[in-house]
Amino acid sequence: MADASLQGKLIEFKGASLAVMTAHVRETEAVRLADALHMMLGGMPDFFAGEPAVLDFAQLASTPDRVDWTAIISLLRRYQVQPIGVRNLPDYLHDGARRANLAILGPEGISAERPIAPPKPQAPPPAPAPVEAPPAPQPAAAASAAPATTMVVERPLRSGQQVYAKGGDLVLLAGMSPGSEVIADGCIHCYGPLRGRALAGARGDTSARIFSTNFGPELVSIAGVYRTFERGIPQTVAGRSTQVRLSGSDNLHTLEIMPLQND
């Protein structure tokens, strides 16, 4: 047996520190969480693609008598978030969490340092619930295998739906309706009517742009520089192929909205 030395080591335990997504849970009522998640990710039930997450209860608004862990876990699984443990949870709730097979983690979490929160989209306050960007460096394996940083939405985006293309571009193949909201860290490409709120360069990328074949949004924003259209969309671009970009120097950015010559 050449591998005799390995025979005893079919399993080996080593310390490792992993970056993991933290979900700051401020409410334990599953129904209200479900509503909030739906507002945030309505059309994208597979947004998180199985990412593990630690549930952090440090910012809990009120302390509940008990927590329906089964409901919360199944709710998160529905959005393909894999809860692995909890932290900053009041002591008297630990038993319940253990019974639900969640690890109780110290306040410092798994790794010694707190994951650095990415800069929040410095957009004007997005309407219903701001999409909180999950800490960036997570799905190492998945991401490196398929560097698909572009998100494609094939169906019309409806009023009340919200999509966030984390770390890349967003392509809408069937347009978006009034009352919907799209956010991308990169560019937004919209084939079909652009009607809701479109926020590109959400993490501050000033070179991001918005393209649409049928321009008519409620609000556009690039890297936090935004514009609304209370007096209507300018005649030169309304309903036409249009791009939006930032121009000007570093500290004096202005939004430029111009028709695209493509006919």
């Binding site: 309505g42 409806r158 739906q161």
Partner: peptide, 24 residues
């Protein structure tokens, strides 16, 4: 029309067909 649009969105996210990734 706006409300219908909203309900279409809910149909796309909360129906069993959508949840189970079947034909919409």
């Amino acid at each position: 029309v706006r409300d219908s649009d909203r309900i279409l969105g809910i149909l796309q996210s909360k129906s069993r067909r959508a949840m189970e990734g079947r034909e919409p």
